[in-house]
């Protein structure tokens, strides 16, 4: 597959922007500016980027509690996302949703979800809706390896398969579900994709730290969904470089060793892609620096936006219960 330099530039821009956004959020959380629960996507940037860049602007995604990467890669605004994390009126949800419910319906981002596996039904229903409206839209449903163990997954796989719905189930296998290791909670004799394959879905297993591999698998799945051939499944193997959430510090939960973490740090996707781009002489140092400077400016603006955006007035409490 031909991948042009403009696309590579976009890939790097998105991966790096997600990484720096998460680092910024982490920092602001420690200062008490970000409030609520915070699950960072650091280490998994290539998955959201590879999948979302394979989508059209009017396509849909459903996201997870670890969803900042999905939203940003789908074109979300870091200002409004950061403001949401900080509970400000300028945030995507006026502070009422926070990190776990950030959504931008106008960009097809149907929402992060606080319930593990909570996006399965919504994504599959959006695919049904797209098919009924003959809109040509497809849906990417992001979920973790932990979520794959929810029974709902089997229900929607079956319905997506019998009705040939345009949905792509993207399993981000980051090695952990909260403080439990993937291989301790999930059958590993067969990959997770075997479950989807049992319903006849085409499945792919890719290195989730390789943005190009993810992108290529996604392009294929999107093409077949768009062509009316039905759902697909992608497992992207990656690794969660931070704790489950901000409260998961050090090695107190005993689910991994320092050595394991260090081993994986060497494979982290943003640095890896950066090195590869330079090695292959696909982008120059100067081009990369320019992208990084642009990202820093955006994040600076996001922080200023947060500072200028007030917390909601208590009088807003009862607003938005009913449409």
């Amino acid at each position: 597959m031909e991948i042009d330099r403009q696309l590579l530039r976009e890939m790097y821009y998105h991966m790096r922007r997600i990484r720096r956004f998460e680092e910024t959020a982490e920092e602001l959380y420690k200062r008490g500016t970000v409030v609520g629960l915070l699950h960072l996507y650091i280490g998994e940037e290539a998955v959201a980027t590879g999948v979302c860049l394979a989508l059209r602007d009017d396509d849909y995604i459903t996201s997870t509690h670890r969803g900042h990467g999905h939203l940003l890669a789908k074109g979300g605004d870091p200002k409004r996302l950061l403001a949401e994390l900080c509970g400000r009126v300028g945030g995507y949800c006026r502070g009422k949703g926070g990190s776990m419910h950030a959504a931008d319906l106008s960009l097809g981002i149907l929402g992060a979800n606080g319930v593990v596996g909570g996006g399965f039904g919504i994504a599959t229903g959006a695919a049904l809706s797209a098919k009924m409206r003959r809109s040509g839209q497809v849906v990417a449903c992001f979920f973790g390896d932990g979520a794959a163990n929810q029974g709902l997954f089997m229900e929607v796989l079956n319905m997506a398969a019998i009705w040939k719905l345009p949905v792509i189930y993207v399993c981000e296998n980051n090695g952990f579900g909260q403080y439990t290791r993937y291989e301790e909670a999930t059958v590993t004799d067969q990959p997770i994709g075997a479950r989807a394959a049992a319903f006849g879905l085409p499945t792919a297993q890719v290195d989730g730290n390789d943005v190009i591999a993810v992108y290529q698998a996604a392009i294929q799945a999107v093409q077949s969904a768009r062509a009316g051939e039905g759902p697909s499944f992608i497992e992207a193997r990656t690794y969660r470089l931070r704790g489950h959430h901000m409260g998961d510090v050090g090695f107190a939960r005993r689910y991994r060793t320092k050595e394991e973490l260090e081993e994986h740090l060497k494979q982290e996707p943003v640095g890896r892609f950066h090195r590869w781009l330079l090695e292959q002489q696909l982008l120059t140092e100067a081009e990369i620096e320019e992208l990084e400077a642009r990202i820093e400016t955006e994040l600076q603006e996001a922080i200023e936006f947060v500072n200028s955006s007030p917390v909601p007035d208590v009088s807003e409490i009862m607003e938005h219960i009913y449409a």
């Binding site: 459903t62 149907l110 039904g121 919504i122 959006a126 049904l128 009924m132």
Partner: peptide, 15 residues
């Protein structure tokens, strides 16, 4: 659970 969830998704997207 599956088709109720799908009802939510379809309702969110114009149906």
């Amino acid at each position: 659970a599956g088709f109720t969830g799908m009802g939510v998704g379809a309702a969110l997207t114009g149906m």
